[in-house]
Design a protein around this nucleic acid. Structure first.
Lengths: 143, 143
DNA sequence: TCCGAAATGTGACATTTATCATATTATCCC
DNA sequence: GGGATAATATGATAAATGTCACATTTCGGA
């Protein structure tokens, strides 16, 4: 439903949201073990996110990746849009283009409104909001 | 959520359920266009399903693939078990092993009970049942 | 102003998944 | 029994995804 890359990206962004800010940037080598993602792969992912302004970065000494306040207001869907696009999230379980509730495929009812529910949440939930819930104990964050 | 192979397999099985029986077997070359699956790829998939007794087959003239009455009583999950196993259906959106409702990952609530609902339906819905619904007009079958 | 720290850019390599091609084996029918 | 037919077996190729390595650029600090 999400590619490995997207999962890694989300984990990394949430980690940065919790542990970094403009005055406390974090380097790849201090992140990768903590979220269990291969170092070089993580580097590539963070660079893509940075280029698309999902996260922020600074080069040189004292540099690293971090989330600005603006970054934190973005919805989660932006992360997966940058990493893999949205095709994997489309709802039809048999990948039939014309499939919808008016013209459902054979499996349509078996999956229910699962995908659209998930997609809607990705669109509506901001990083900020998710982190707040975690801080408030409303959500847990095993990474 | 399902691999392309599984989707092809499900389409093919449903097609066979509707159009074949012990006295009317069907050849790959008469199926693949109708369900829009590459011929050789479909052949390979049908062979795997046949070897695992999800579908039936006969060689030589008048041979082909078909679904026996016994085959039709199998739940849909058997198809995906044979083709790709069950890992892709596991519920955690971040692929975290320890993730469950007691110890939910950050995205757990965003996906809700979607996957478990889908999995349950795959386990409980037999090919037979699905075909009946289609025949009764309760479900539609664009392949 | 130079050294080293860190992201960035580029591309090679590995793995998985999807697709195609071809030779082999079993079965029916004459 | 021999020829045509259709599944079966094996493996080659292609494409997408995931992983690694290294050279380059930018920037801070002594």
């Amino acid at each position: 439903m999400l590619s490995t890359s997207s999962k890694y990206a989300i984990k990394a962004v949430l980690f940065l949201a919790l542990h970094s800010n403009e005055n406390h940037k974090m380097m790849v080598k201090d992140i990768f073990q903590r979220i269990n993602v291969p170092q070089q792969y993580l580097a590539k992912i963070l660079q893509e996110l940075s280029k698309k302004d999902i996260i922020s970065s600074a080069r040189g000494p004292k540099g690293g990746f971090y989330l600005s306040d603006t970054n934190k207001t973005l919805p989660l869907i932006n992360i997966v849009d940058v990493i893999e696009g949205r095709h994997r999230l489309q709802s039809c379980m048999l990948s039939i283009k014309e499939c919808d509730s008016q013209n459902p495929c054979a499996l349509h009812d078996l999956v229910g409104n699962a995908n659209s529910y998930f997609l809607k949440n990705l669109e509506e939930t901001t990083i900020e909001k998710l982190i707040e819930d975690i801080r408030d104990g409303k959500a847990i964050l095993p990474l």
